[in-house]
């Protein structure tokens, strides 16, 4: 009988911890790994090997920005890919609604209402708005504020605004 009550209390504790953890990760903050080198040199600066998941960066994702959906230029955000909702991408916001963005194919487009223009820091290998266009702000899952792992690279993520990429009016 003793082992059964022990199991019951263990299950109850696991349930509580899961509940609280899920709520915190949904509403306040969570920690996610960064895969791939599309945001290098900000994340994963060294060229990653095929099996090199050990040197992935882990970043802190804050969710307070989702209450108002207020973002600024240069924020790094995590969002679900518009072509595959199960895939999460991490990119930097270049343009906000109303901005004019110069794309690399020499045309200028206006970011529509409720959308944003996202690009990776690594201009060479990045699947971003250059291939799928502006994304709705509603796809954004959170804003990256800090790198938490590995220890030597711990620290804040600066919001870097590329010069001359957008003009707002």
């Amino acid at each position: 009988m003793g082992s059964r009550s022990f199991l019951w209390s263990l299950a109850k504790n696991y349930f509580t911890v899961g509940l609280i953890g899920l709520t915190i990760s949904d509403r306040y903050a969570s920690i996610v790994p960064v895969r791939g080198n599309s945001m290098s040199p900000t994340f994963n600066p060294q060229t990653s090997t095929f099996l090199g998941s050990s040197d992935d960066d882990y970043v802190l994702l804050e969710k307070f920005c989702l209450q108002k959906y207020k973002f600024s230029h240069g924020d790094v955000v995590v969002f679900s890919s518009p072509s595959n909702h199960k895939e999460k991408l991490i990119k930097r916001i270049i343009g906000l609604p109303g901005d004019w963005i110069g794309t690399h194919s020499h045309d200028v487009i206006k970011v529509p209402e409720g959308h944003c223009w996202v690009e990776g820091d690594n201009l060479l290998s990045s699947m971003d708005s250059k291939s799928f266009g502006p994304i709705p702000l509603g796809l954004i899952n959170g804003r990256v504020t800090h790198i938490v792992w590995p220890p030597p690279r711990m620290g804040g993520v600066e919001t870097r605004i590329p010069v001359g990429r957008f003009s707002s009016n």
Binding site: K68, Y69, G114, G138
Partner: peptide, 8 residues
Amino acid sequence: VRSPLDPR
């Protein structure tokens, strides 16, 4: 659906 024009 979260509106694409206004995410709120």
